[in-house]
């Protein structure tokens, strides 16, 4: 299971990468593995506000549904329509093509996000 060192992680199993001042967000390899085949994802509309640790959408696999929590606060500037149209992309490449949305952050990354090693310890403990 991969946890790239350059990413930050939330305890709700999302990852964040800061790119040109915006946060790119997705779900972790651990999350996609736990879910199994992802068949539906519901994301906030472009232009809407998201807040750290608050619900922003849903992700659903053949067997279960989970809520998505935003790891950052800000305004949604882009969603990955390819992942919405072909949710299996999230299973195949959770940190790459399976990214979910791009958020223009209000300020910087919130406190409390985990490093790869810290996140690995969290999921190892689950």
């Amino acid at each position: 299971m991969q946890f790239p060192a350059e990413l930050r992680y939330s305890r709700e199993h999302e990852w964040v990468r800061v790119e040109d001042g915006a946060a790119v967000v997705g779900i972790t390899d651990f999350a996609q593995d736990q879910l199994g085949d992802v068949v539906f994802v519901s994301l906030p509309a472009v232009g809407s506000k998201v807040a750290a640790l608050e619900k922003m959408g849903e992700i659903e696999s053949v067997k279960s549904v989970s809520e998505l929590y935003s790891p950052v606060s800000g305004t949604v500037v882009e969603i990955n329509q390819a992942a919405v149209d072909s949710p299996e992309t999230i299973n195949r490449d959770a940190y790459g093509e399976g990214w979910l949305l791009r958020v223009a952050m209000d300020g910087g990354l919130p406190d409390g996000l985990l490093s790869a090693d810290e996140y690995r310890a969290v999921v190892g403990a689950e």
């Binding site: 199994g36 085949d37 068949v39 053949v62 067997k63 299996e88 299973n91």
Partner: peptide, 9 residues
């Protein structure tokens, strides 16, 4: 067993 490689596969 619920699944091995994945339900869809």
């Amino acid at each position: 067993p619920l699944q091995y490689r994945g339900i869809v596969e």
